[in-house]
Design a protein around this nucleic acid. Sequence first.
DNA 1: AAGTGTGAAGTGCTTCACAGCA
DNA 2: TGCTGTGAAGCACTTCACACTT
Lengths: 261, 261
Amino acid sequence: MTVPPQADPDDGAVRSRTIPEASVARLALYLRVLGELAEQGAETVSSEELAGVTGVNPAKLRKDLSYIGSYGIRGVGYEVSSLLHQLERVLGLNHRQAVALVGVGNLGHALAGYTGFGGRGFPVTALFDVDPDLVGIHINGILVEHVDAIPSVCAARGVTIGMIATPGPAAQGVCDLLVESGVRCILNFAPVVLQVPDEVEVRKVDLAVELQVLAFHVARRHVAEHPQAVAGGNGHGRNGHGSAVRTFPLVDGASASEGRA
Amino acid sequence: MTVPPQADPDDGAVRSRTIPEASVARLALYLRVLGELAEQGAETVSSEELAGVTGVNPAKLRKDLSYIGSYGIRGVGYEVSSLLHQLERVLGLNHRQAVALVGVGNLGHALAGYTGFGGRGFPVTALFDVDPDLVGIHINGILVEHVDAIPSVCAARGVTIGMIATPGPAAQGVCDLLVESGVRCILNFAPVVLQVPDEVEVRKVDLAVELQVLAFHVARRHVAEHPQAVAGGNGHGRNGHGSAVRTFPLVDGASASEGRA
DNA sequence: AAGTGTGAAGTGCTTCACAGCA
DNA sequence: TGCTGTGAAGCACTTCACACTT
């Protein structure tokens, strides 16, 4: 098809396509790197350059970008500022997203003060906790309010994204409050699986799981350095990014017969 | 094949299989939930029960577990304590993993105090920073040392996992130091793509990307509620977990002709 | 000549459905 | 009978290769 690149009505004739979820996450990555390139004064980038910096396969990058339209110039590359603009639009960053953070304990406090958010279009707009010692204080100029106030405050401030950084046992209750308040997208740091209605999108950041996956790899490497009865063979390569889907030999202390079954 | 379940020599006759990376992450999740079930006194669980709590498809769960061996009992389910033990072994949690954390600023300070780590076999063993105001202080009883000391300290304490929570520009340098010190698994919170040798495993937790993906969904939902010229149709469902691979209609303000090309 | 956009092939994860064991 | 373990089918993402544009 190859549609002529055209100015975007921003919210005018809304059309719809389809983007693989995996691509959406990478688009966000491209956006950040493009921002850095723009600051350095770059005017265009090729898929190969951008792929190099982001650790993504160039073909995959081009395909990702093709999902949002044809904004590249053949023989040249992509115009940085233009692509930046398109990515921001697709990722919904032209509307400011008000973020509410529930749980300002250890981790939550750090998140509340994390400048990487507000600086990039995600102002933390409301803070909540149940601890009487925390309710009433200010963090980064934001008042910490009681969890009971979630419905009213979220509605009043138009919160669109909720972050949960409470202890595990409190998370589901908080989640229910957020959903009840109309929040449809939630970032969950608590170590529990939240139950939510279909229309609510939950993303989870699970530090314990991350470490355990790494521990698995430590064990795997340990075997790789002491190849005893190891069989499996995936001599891949790449430099730690790429996120090519892989499988890993498992250090197994039991069971037998390896072939399929 | 169906191998008779047998006691594990723990490190004896080491064998190797293959586990999809996606499964490894879920195994860690099962492990945590099983721990909770064990505390509640449960002796067995069926794949359906465990699947319900973890938000995973029962068949997928069984397949995940089958990768580590046949530890279930047909007609009954899985013995909680036994399965727990197997998961810990596979995930390398029977050897304690010493963790080093670099960057004890905003986020790093919270991570250093995060009890979810040490409690589950990941004692934070070393802290590093470059800020003279931080070097020398203690956090949770751990001395913050200068980044220059990474090689010696990591070697001395047998650090196997490194966490990077520095500002973006410092991350690559810190990463190089860790790798040089023999650390082969890194959890990166800095908003940069680390360049590492093939043998180093990097996992990235990117808060900005998480929020941007959610922002994308906010925009998507906005359209769903105002179905104007929307075309795409994925009337899926599920409750926010499941992690079934999906695609999403894109709110597009430009370009035309939708069919392929 | 250079680099994008993309059909088609490749690969791996997910889900189904059922044989088989307790 | 109930539930696990798994072959096979389904599906989505990744990668290749090249037509096409500038």
